[in-house]
Amino acid sequence: MTPVLAWACGVLAVVVAALAGIATVRGHRLDDRLLIAVAVLEAAMLLQAVIGFVALAVTDRSVDGVVFGSYLVTTVLVPVVGAFWALGEKSRWGTGVLLVAALTSAILVVRLEQVWSTGA
């Protein structure tokens, strides 16, 4: 696991949350620009998951694999499921859903990094 990538994922998640939050406040619907931002976040999460599972397999340190693995899987799922749930809502609340998903992603990345660095 590289802290650089975790930071990048965290910052991306916060950026998506900010964009989604602004859209919700302004009453904007989900648009392509926001979906591209989610796709970039998802790509970063996928990369992190691949690197994370490899790191888990080769590390000598004692890291709780079940916990770490569940976090990795969840970080990949949350942006996608959030985007699909948001797409079904043709109002400002669609972007509100994305705000929740992005904030959740940010928290998950922080927890993931904690699990990796402290082992639990």
Binding site: T74, V78, V81, W85, E89, W93, G96, V100, A101
Partner: peptide, 28 residues
Amino acid sequence: HGPGRVLVAVYAVLGLSATVRGSYQVLF
């Protein structure tokens, strides 16, 4: 629909995190 969409999202997040965390804790 409407605000309920966001409410469902927050409920899903809590449902997932608490159920997964709780199952893990009970099992291990």
